[in-house]
């Protein structure tokens, strides 16, 4: 008998946050669950043919269509009168960019599906290319820093706001550093009679380049600096916010990662750090993260 619904022996990098995310989501959802996934690290590392790490039914079709596949699965589950959870677990490349069309359709048609995005903020599987989720001034292979560049020139796409604009009844952000919070959000989302969207901060040891073992700490720092606010929206209204007890400057989060190393090397980096601090301050003010 497996203790977790994701078996060991998968090929994710040592110290990857994605399997921990899957474990926590499946823990909360239980065995009566069907999962659809897009292409990505998750698909490649958990299902190297002819093996599968999944202990629940799992289906992969294409990069762009897990939400469409799950929509069909959900309709069949409904038609047969079953009460089975239908979940999509995908990375940010699929969720924010490539699968946006089918995500939009799934949200808008109102399927009873939980969409979980493990957000590692770039296309990690193919070699750390920039995605719509890559934050401002992060170094990726397609936005390298150099004489003329400070890394990714654009801020991160606000995917929760896009989900809310589709009138998705339950939207939340979560972090692997807050497992109790994440599991509670998954349970709540599965009770919603309609679509739900949870975006989980999932540090990538290869793409973000950090020391082994600190992935949970990095994710915690993202929350404690205000760069990753933990928020719940029900019917478009903010219903719950995780307050920050010990607010930290964004430098503490940024300096743990190689993708921001240039900001601490270049003389003009200080101005950028100030801009990123302003982004965190805007989050803190918007969601009243500090009492």
């Amino acid at each position: 008998m497996e203790k977790s619904l994701l078996a060991p022996g998968h090929r994710a990098c040592a110290g990857c946050a994605m399997p921990t995310t899957i474990k926590l989501v499946l823990d909360a959802a239980g065995p009566n669950t069907i999962v659809a996934s897009p292409t990505g690290c998750l698909e490649v590392t958990t299902t190297p043919f002819p093996e599968s790490a999944w202990c629940v039914p799992w289906i992969h079709s294409l990069f762009e269509n897990p939400a469409a596949v799950a929509s069909g699965v959900e309709l069949m589950v409904k038609r047969r009168g079953h009460d089975t959870n239908v979940i999509v677990i995908g990375g940010d490349g699929s969720t924010f960019d490539i699968g946006m069309g089918s995500n939009s359709g799934m949200f808008e048609r109102g399927h009873k599906i939980l969409y979980v995005c493990y957000d590692n903020e770039a296309y990690m599987n193919t070699g750390v290319q920039r995605s719509g989720s890559t934050p401002f001034c992060a170094n990726t292979t397609t936005t390298p820093w150099g004489k003329e560049s400070l890394g990714n020139p654009r801020p991160k796409k606000d995917m929760p706001a896009i989900a809310i604009a589709h009138r998705v009844p339950y939207v939340a952000t979560a972090s692997i550093a807050y497992p109790v919070d994440l599991r509670r959000k998954v349970k709540r989302a599965l009770q919603v009679n309609g679509p739900s969207y949870i975006q989980v901060n999932a540090p990538c040891i290869t793409g973000w380049t950090f020391e082994a073992g600190i992935m949970v700490e990095i994710s915690r720092l993202a929350v404690e600096t205000g760069l990753w606010p933990l928020v719940e929206w029900v019917n478009g209204e903010v219903t719950e916010v995780k307050k920050i007890r010990m607010l930290k400057p964004v430098d503490e989060y940024l300096k743990t990662q190689g993708r921001y190393r240039h900001l601490f090397k270049r003389p003009d980096g200080a101005a950028i750090l100030k801009q990123i601090q302003d982004m965190a301050d805007a989050n803190i003010a918007k969601y009243q993260l500090v009492d």
């Binding site: 060991p8 022996g9 090929r11 040592a14 958990t46 002819p50 093996e51 599968s52 202990c55």
Partner: peptide, 20 residues
Amino acid sequence: AGKLVDPCSTRITKTGAWRT
């Protein structure tokens, strides 16, 4: 279309060999 494999079957791969 598609291919079915056994659940939890990555257990046959002992990733402990990666360890330092």
